[in-house]
């Protein structure tokens, strides 16, 4: 396998995918709007406008990100499958792992681009200093682990109806370690709980684990 060729394929596939996503605005716009609406719903449901909210905030933020991520992941292979891109790539010399990696990177960029404004918005809405560098680090790490797993799962080729229904059911139980680690790390960054180091370690471990296993498994699954 020619590594330099595969590497250039990775770059061009990622760029092409991002360009296509940018042009096809409906997918990431709905995800962003969903995240905003979910944040609003949570603030009504849990009465975040009054009282001490800082102990609830990590959970609220991460459940919003988790569900918004499912939203965007369920659409991620949609266009490719409809236009027969995946079949074309299968007969091309590009290694399937490269296809998977490019999709993961593209999903990661999309989701991170949505999450950062949501963090900014939450800072303004709840008067808590959420928009800080270590929380952004946690968000990026968590999103990496998240995207590498959901991208693999979204590659499933069920009928168009049940794909969107099955994805959260399949992904959420596997994502329990990620959710726990992200919530706890964010809480410790907000000075709610004392020690965030083990949770950061778990986040890194989860990201490495999901990326490795998905890269290995994708050629078998698709």
């Amino acid at each position: 396998m020619d590594l330099a060729y595969q590497y250039s394929c990775l770059i061009s596939l990622t760029v092409a995918d991002l360009k296509l996503t940018w042009r096809e605005k409906s997918a990431w716009l709905t995800t962003a709007l969903f995240a905003c609406a979910a944040l609003l719903i949570y603030s009504f449901a849990l009465d975040l406008a009054s009282g001490v909210v800082v102990s609830l905030l990590p959970g609220v933020i991460w459940t919003v990100f988790l569900f918004a991520g499912i939203f965007s992941a369920s659409q991620s292979f949609h266009a490719d499958r409809e236009n027969g891109v995946l079949d074309a790539l299968r007969i091309s010399p590009v290694h399937p792992t490269i296809v998977y990696l490019s999709k993961t990177i593209s999903n990661f960029v999309q989701l991170a681009a949505i999450q950062i404004p949501v963090l900014l918005g939450a800072t303004v809405l709840f008067n808590e200093d959420i928009f800080q560098i270590n929380i952004i680090m946690i968000v990026l790490l968590g999103t990496l682990g998240y995207c590498s797993l959901t991208t693999l799962l979204s590659a499933l080729s069920f009928g168009s109806k049940s794909t969107n229904l099955m994805l959260p059911v399949m992904a959420l139980p596997l994502l329990v370690p990620l959710l726990i680690a992200c919530v706890e790390a964010t809480a410790s960054a907000l000075d709610e709980t004392p020690d965030g180091a083990p949770w950061m370690m778990l986040l890194v471990l989860f990201a490495i684990w999901t990326t490795l296993i998905s890269a290995l498994m994708f050629p078998l699954a698709d």
């Binding site: 693999l152 799962l153 499933l156 080729s157 069920f158 399949m170 296993i213 498994m217 078998l220 698709d222």
Partner: peptide
């Protein structure tokens, strides 16, 4: 689907 589900079971 069978292949995909097998991957899911292993993961």
């Amino acid at each position: 689907v069978a292949r995909f589900c097998s991957v899911y079971a292993i993961i």
